[in-house]
């Protein structure tokens, strides 16, 4: 085998590992950040005892999760029950595969074993990136549904049923909302989408300005896909105890928990990339490192938005949620896409 290819593959594997562990670390950080932010919103302190400003709470929680006794209820379908948390977590991680964090790959100025080392700011820059995100995103539904069904518990069953209906429905408007962006860009490649935003108005033609409706629809559907409040009906602790996760404890619950948060983080990355101009910002063209900072700021903003929504909006009732999707979001997104197509046709005919 060509040595250069081998080195590239090794580097790529290292990047994948780094991204996966980075996401897990971000999940840990996010739990603490969320609790602190929620605390501020609700006039509390949040966890502030372990370590400076409660930052070591991540370690404490992680250790707690790992050392919990593995309880498998006797009435569950063992294989599916054990599989479900993994099935839930992996697609959430996979979706991060096509998210670029900078414009250009970094070529190291020195050679290792006679090969140049190129660090790509993405894991794969495939030409069907958006399609891939949608496809992988819907895989995540399986974990929750399987967990709900295999638990053999009435609350889990209701949670699983709600999940399957909710997530399948919300994928439609989400896809159509992205369609109106894709119509403008003309490519499904994530880097193309960012580069398009970079190429007009000095890099400020972000899609949130051109397609605000698509942005809102995408954000709402993203919340529903990630099972976040006000669309956290699979869990609904006030109705279904913990929904699909009722029978799960210890690290198995931890994986579900991680899946939800990683889903949320990746969603924020995708939102920032597609609608908020990714790494674009003042001087980001000249100093590429700034781009990563800008991207992280945008991601943090979207995450904050998600927490903000959680703390201030009551939960939607299930049937209203479905009605909202099918009778409002879907027609709206289709209309948005149609108007976009019409405008494009007029402009470029």
């Amino acid at each position: 085998m060509d040595q250069q290819l081998l080195v590239d593959i090794i580097v790529q594997i290292i990047i994948i590992g780094a991204v996966a562990s980075g996401l897990m670390a971000a999940f840990g950080a996010m739990t603490v950040v969320e609790r602190r932010v929620l605390g501020k919103f609700t006039m509390r302190y949040g966890p502030n005892r372990v370590g400076p400003f409660g930052t070591l709470q991540i370690v404490a929680d992680g250790l707690k999760m790992f050392f919990k006794e593995e309880v498998i209820p006797s009435h569950v379908d063992r294989l599916v029950y054990l599989m479900a948390p993994g099935v839930s977590l992996v697609p959430a991680l996979l979706a991060a595969g096509v998210v670029p964090i900078a414009a250009q790959p970094l070529v190291l100025p020195f050679e290792v074993f006679g090969s140049t080392i190129t660090i790509y700011p993405w894991m794969a820059d495939i030409n069907v990136g958006v399609l891939y995100i949608l496809a992988v995103g819907s895989l995540g539904t399986y974990g929750v549904v399987l967990g709900g069904w295999s638990s053999n518990n009435k609350y889990s069953l209701l949670g699983g049923l709600r999940t399957s209906a909710q997530m399948l429905s919300y994928e439609l408007p989400m896809g159509v909302a992205l369609l109106s962006v894709l119509l403008i860009v003309g490519s499904m490649r994530m880097t193309d989408i960012v580069n398009f935003q970079a190429s007009y108005l000095g890099g400020y033609l972000w899609f949130i300005f051109i397609q605000p409706i698509a942005f809102l629809i995408f954000f709402i559907c993203g919340l529903a896909e990630a099972g976040r409040s006000p669309f956290d009906l699979p869990e609904t602790e006030n109705e279904l105890i913990a929904g699909f996760a009722t029978e799960y404890g210890g690290m198995k619950f931890g994986l579900f928990f991680a899946a939800e948060y990683i889903h949320m983080i990746v969603l924020s990355f995708i939102t920032a990339t597609i609608f908020l101009g990714g790494w674009l910002g003042p001087f980001s063209q000249q100093i590429p490192v700034l781009g990563i900072v800008y991207l992280l700021i945008k991601v943090a903003f979207v995450l904050f938005l998600i927490i903000w929504v959680r703390v201030s909006i009551p939960r939607v009732r299930f049937d209203k949620l479905m009605k909202f999707c099918w009778k409002f979001l879907l027609p709206l997104s289709i209309a948005n896409a149609a108007v976009t197509a019409l405008v494009l046709a007029i402009l470029f005919f």
Partner: peptide, 18 residues
């Protein structure tokens, strides 16, 4: 009531308890 309807992290419960 707000907590039952709106979810546990909703801000209203603690504003009331305050």
């Amino acid at each position: 009531h707000a907590m039952d309807v709106g979810g546990t992290p909703h801000a209203a419960p603690l504003y009331c308890f305050m």
